[in-house]
Design a protein around this nucleic acid. Structure first.
Lengths: 195, 195
DNA sequence: GTCTATAGAAAGATAGAC
DNA sequence: GTCTATCTTTCTATAGAC
């Protein structure tokens, strides 16, 4: 028996989230209407409310799932043995993951202010959990005498900010490919934490 | 003869821009209504249109004036003699200026997408003009053999991104004061461009 | 599960009185 | 220069048919 027409819950949900992610990232959360999201998916605005209680919950879900996926993907990989190797691994992973998920990364920095206090807190906690991975690497290298950091917390923030910056200007069609960019950034990161 | 009541063009214009800057930065351009801006200033919504042709022009003006002021302020200062001293001067200026104008800095990165193509181009050109100041310093140090850069353009972007990151987490009431933060960041920048 | 239709609120911008 | 009033559009969210 064929599925009844108009019944597509398994695919409409993900399509709504994909459309919302793209539109929110490109135009901003407040500038995107539920009608625009529905039009992208090919359903009516009212149908969206079968998948999300309201617009903010849709944003929160996108940000939370993004952060959870980033942490899980990082943790699922084998960790190199030395602090230096682990730092290089982090730098290359971060650049690659961010470029692969540029819209979600952009959203997760830009649209936090559109979350209610509770939703904001969950996303911030996830971000800190990710940053703690880098801090742990730096701390281990510092203890081993490999790294020389003026300040652990500031070094963490400085490295994250530097690596995040790649997403602002990188284009696949540009002068350098991803591996080339990652190699150059790793060189600067390595020197910044050395003696 | 006393000024007629309700005539305040010299002060209302700046007050509108100040209110728009604050509201746009905190809630986002699209999320702020002309009525909210007017309420902040203490006038009716219609009165705003004596000072701006529309909402986007108000945003464009804020971003353009911000970038022009940043460049002019930087250029008005005496330039140190050596590339190293000029780079340290740039790092400290950039952190200080960004913290002094946090809302405008945030706006000028986040709300570019709400500008029309022409307005976007003028702001981008100003941003590049500012970045060129840093590139020139790095290039001079490279030529003198003081700096060792894997890539001039990427080093420029990496340093700007790293310094911009301070605005995300810095609080006046925090563990470190501005000079302390600037000193630590300068240490990391210096090492990143060294041999 | 999706549709049409709509309630109710709020938006950007303008007209004309003062 | 500012106000009140309003035009027109658009928004989020819901109700009820199918």
């Amino acid at each position: 028996m064929a599925r009844r027409m108009g019944s597509h819950s398994e695919i409409t949900g993900p399509r709504i989230r994909a459309a919302a992610l793209r539109l929110f990232a490109r135009r901003g959360f407040a500038a995107v209407s539920m009608r625009q999201i529905a039009a992208e998916v090919g359903v009516q605005a009212g149908a969206l409310y079968l998948y999300t209680p309201d617009k903010e919950a849709l944003l929160h879900d996108l940000l939370r799932v993004h952060m959870e996926d980033m942490i899980a993907t990082f943790d699922a990989r084998p960790a190199p043995a030395t602090p230096v190797a682990r730092l290089e691994d982090f730098a290359r992973f971060h650049i690659g993951y961010n470029l692969d998920h540029a819209e979600a990364v952009f959203l997760s920095y830009m649209e936090l202010r559109n979350l209610s206090a509770g939703n904001f807190a969950t996303v911030e906690a996830l971000r800190h959990a990710y940053e703690d991975r880098l801090s742990a690497i730096l701390s281990a290298g510092q203890a081993a005498g490999t790294f020389h950091l003026p300040d652990l917390r500031l070094a963490t923030m400085a490295i994250i900010a530097m690596l995040n910056g790649v997403n602002i200007w990188f284009r696949e069609s540009g002068r350098l490919d991803r591996a080339g960019v990652a190699g150059i950034y790793w060189d600067m990161v390595r020197k910044a934490v050395s003696a």
